[in-house]
Design a protein around this nucleic acid. Structure first.
Lengths: 194, 194, 194, 194
DNA sequence: TATGAATGAGTCTTCATTCAT
DNA sequence: GATGAATGAAGACTCATTCAT
């Protein structure tokens, strides 16, 4: 419909996606507006509707871009560290990086909050459902691989339990304005794995 | 800020809070708008800014009202059931009622989603922080009491773990468009408490 | 909903209605836009949505205003001429004034076209239906009164037939770019009444 | 202006006209947009401005196409039925088919409304004037022929009167939200021809 | 000859907030 | 103490048309 296959067109489209993804990460779904995206990308307002049939379409692309980026970075890191034996603590940090984002190491609660807002906000956007399921599956695979390589025996059920534990701990930490949700999740994982 | 101590003033203020709380429960933070609140309360639009210095002010009052109401209902229920011996399953349902809301029993995912959106959306509203902390503490107390009365030995750490497990399971169920988040949480609790 | 009962408010509201009615008469339904109305009335854009819950609401008010104005003018004229005996030709001109608008006497086809566009455009706007029926009934009454006072015996069926004849003649004249639709209708009426 | 004489060009141009005519019939003048036409024709958006200097140009071609099509269909039908003797009622239905469109037999008021919107909307598009005159003349011829063959004596004046009567009746029926404008026109013709 | 890319202008509508009364 | 009136800013989206390639 709103195709754009020329290199130039593709570049502009990508610029919009990147701008939207940045806004998404910085301010959540609400921050992704036609105006804001166009301005950040340095493109005219109408370009947003030219390249994307609706704002939802653009948001979808932004979520996908951001998530794939993060997943890819996670995979790359896993490869990079592949053959080194790792301590439980190192595995835990890796897990936390994957689940809370690497920013959570220094960004305090803010980065984590944004991430979980995005997750909890997804169900409101039904068009994200297939994507979220796919990304979720890929993330689980990645986490399973992390455990496998580190020699820790973890079945599927146990993996889901650990993920739930982390997510639940984080959510509760956020709600209680705990300034260090990562720390809370870390403690929880240690008591489970350690 | 813009107090209102007349009996009449107090009554109107309360009507606005109740209306806002209803909207909050039905449609999340986004649904709480000056217009909508005033209309539902059957009061003039300007009354919303007269009794509340800003929309955030009103939202804060609504969150407080709603949460206290729910906590009180939870406590009342506990008292009501106090002396009857209870099966593990009954305890689990009670826990789920407290954590996911009683609506979750028939409201499907929607009611649960609304609740978790509210929780995760809270940190973005700093004025809610003290309230959320206080409410969290009271909820934990209530849950501890439930366990205590049902004869199940559960320490503070273990309680926090169970809560995290439920919240994490629910969040993940929502993200994956699982139509029955309560069911997912129930299974998790059973495997932990069974 | 968007009440406005203060004299001042009522005046502004009326200014918008008048502006909208002018635009309607000059350019048809399509010409009645928020921007255009606000500009013509010399009021801010948002005032249009403040006083009218939607554009349709405003259009409805404009149509009603314009039509009642015309009907009232027609009645006034009838009273004014009341007791003078009238020739068939005078009756015919009166009829044409009522059905085509007084402007049709000097405005050529343009004024008539706008009028018939408005009529034929009404069914597309269901909210106008009750109004159009009411106005139609009042117009028929007025025309019946004209015949009655001029001593010409005309039953209800015959009246509807004459109206249809005029409207149909006018529509066909317009389609064929006849510059004098009133002339065509006049001839038709003369051959019927003469 | 922007001619296109290649066989391929001519074919594409025609495809656009056909698409535009369909949209015209289905949704009136307003429905004929560059985008919509191109999409329906399965051609690139820019082809609409390449083959037609403006939207009006395209609309003109669509009106012409549609009208000639209908006239031709009318003539064909007349030939087909030519030698059978016909009752007055059959003649009336034939007349109504020609004036209101065959769709009016089952399409209810909608199809008729669309047709009269198109007719009354024509004068606003001056470029349609010559076409509309020509088509009008041909239609009158066709109707005259219908009467001639059915043995009913009808002079030119009487024919124009009957047409006006039908059109006027239909317009008034539409305005009054009469759901069966064809029925109204039928009754009118019966009382005139019966 | 064609067309993908592009956009300025405009569409209706919502809303938090201010202010005069 | 209360509120009707008011509005600037922003929201998503549409569209005819231009232009470089």
């Amino acid at each position: 419909m709103t195709a754009a296959s020329t290199p130039k067109g593709e570049r502009r489209r990508q610029a919009l996606v990147v701008a939207a993804a940045e806004l998404l990460v910085e301010g959540g779904f609400e921050a992704v507006r036609h105006r804001a995206v166009a301005e950040r990308a340095g493109l005219p307002l109408a370009s947003t509707t030219y390249y994307f049939s609706s704002l939802d379409d653009l948001i979808g692309a932004a979520v996908e871009h951001e998530s794939r980026q993060e997943l890819a970075a996670g995979r790359a890191r896993l490869e990079e560290l592949a053959d080194q034996p790792r301590s439980t603590d190192a595995v835990i940090e890796l897990l936390l990086d994957m689940l809370l984002g690497r920013d959570s190491r220094d960004g305090g609660a803010e980065a984590v909050l944004l991430r979980y807002e995005r997750l909890v906000g997804s169900p409101r956007r039904p068009y994200l459902a297939p994507l979220m399921r796919e990304l979720g599956a890929e993330l689980h695979e990645l986490l399973a691989e992390i455990f496998a390589r580190s020699g820790v025996e973890v079945g599927r059920e146990r993996l889901l339990e650990l993920i739930a534990l982390v997510d639940g701990t984080v959510v509760n930490a956020l709600i209680e304005s705990n300034p260090d949700p990562r720390g809370a999740a870390r403690r929880m994982l240690r008591s489970q794995l350690g």
